[in-house]
Write a protein that binds this DNA or RNA. Structure first.
Length: 328
DNA sequence: AATCGGATCAACCGCGGGTCG
DNA sequence: GCGACCCGCGGTTGATCCGAT
């Protein structure tokens, strides 16, 4: 059985609300409250809107207790914290998150998450969906794949990572299609990009390439990107990503990908950068909650970061045709 | 100055749960 | 218990803004 529409579509106006409409709706609700949205358009001075649209306009914009304008840092931290918790609970309820932020609506929170916070977290090396460092996600995925697949995955991911990082650092759009070394080889040299690029970009590329090749000098590059401490081993839980999860979560330090905002967010709490710095993005072993090394499937699936991206680029003891040899 | 593309946010859509007769 | 209806939610769309080229 099909559901009947909430209103007659032909007689209903859509799109932006006018000041006059706002006034009609607000004054009606001030007098009569918000019972029975279906009747409100008729009663509120013949509004050519459906009840649903009226409810949305009221709850998201006209309500007098609403807070308009920029989200504060504390609000952002609350959203991220609660989003992480809700993700673990396998249910994202924007209304519940918004309930913790007086004056904010679920639509506000949802929009802010989708347009700002997701990018912010990504820029910090944290997956906004799982709230785990990208490097740890890669390791988790790697443990489920056969070695040949992991090798290809690592190559592809590494290429994507380099391009994304270049984009973040230079604020210039990189040409993904013209970066063949990302997939076809491990070394990423200025010459291999076709030449003619700006000097700054070339320096960054070279630095990234060095870092990936585990060159000690390349630590400078990573220090520039993330002044992180030594990462702890083990799969990243939320406590690891957000160490102050239970006490009021906070990032301290510069922001990434949001220059000029004076944000107190930083990558210092994210082990992703450091993990990558240490061993090319994948940690050495997987530990369980007790700090003991977990097997995580077949032994040969275990990811050895040191082995993956050393200067020899030994990925696994693979048949030669499956190996991807570095460009040296 | 014009154009383009990305970012933002208000509004819409469809679904599912709750309530009532 | 069932159907009709209402409400609220999350996901998505589209208009507008704004900065870069």
């Amino acid at each position: 059985m099909g559901r009947i529409p909430c209103c007659e579509r032909e007689n209903v106006k859509r799109g932006q609300w006018t000041l006059e409409e706002d006034n009609k709706l607000a004054s009606y609700i001030a007098q009569h409250g918000t019972r029975n949205w279906r009747l409100i358009p008729k009663n509120a001075g013949r509004l050519q809107r459906c009840g649903k649209s009226c409810r949305l306009r009221w709850t998201n914009y006209l309500r007098p207790d609403l807070k308009h304008g920029e989200f504060s840092e504390a609000e952002e931290q609350t959203i991220v914290k609660l989003h992480a918790v809700r993700f673990v609970a396998n249910v994202i309820r924007w209304s519940l998150i918004a309930g913790q932020l007086p004056g904010r609506t679920d639509n506000d929170v949802k929009n802010h998450w989708n347009t700002k916070l997701k990018k912010k977290l990504s820029g910090m090396g944290i997956d906004p969906v799982t709230h785990k460092p990208f490097s740890h996600l890669m390791a988790e995925i790697a443990t489920t794949l056969a070695p040949p697949q992991v090798a290809h995955l690592a190559e592809a991911a590494l290429g994507c990572f380099k391009d994304e990082m270049l984009h973040l650092l230079t604020k210039k759009r990189t040409d993904f299609a013209s970066a063949p070394p990302a997939v076809t080889g491990n070394a990423y040299t200025p010459e291999s990009t076709g030449g003619g690029k700006e000097e700054t970009i070339e320096k960054i590329k070279l630095g990234l390439s060095k870092a990936i090749m585990h060159d000690p000098d390349a630590d400078k590059v990573w220090t520039m990107m993330a002044s992180a401490g030594e990462p702890s081993d083990g799969l990243a839980g939320l406590e690891e990503t957000y160490p102050t999860l239970n006490e009021g979560f906070r990032y301290d330090g510069p922001s990434y990908g949001n220059e000029g905002e004076g944000s107190a967010w930083s990558q210092s709490t994210c082990t992703g950068g450091a993990a990558a710095r240490r061993g090319g993005g994948l940690h050495d072993k997987v530990e369980d909650d007790n700090g003991e090394e977990a097997e995580g499937g077949k032994a040969e699936h275990k990811v050895s970061a040191a082995g993956m991206f050393t200067s020899e680029c030994v990925l696994w003891d693979l048949p030669d045709d499956l190996m991807i040899h570095p460009i040296v």
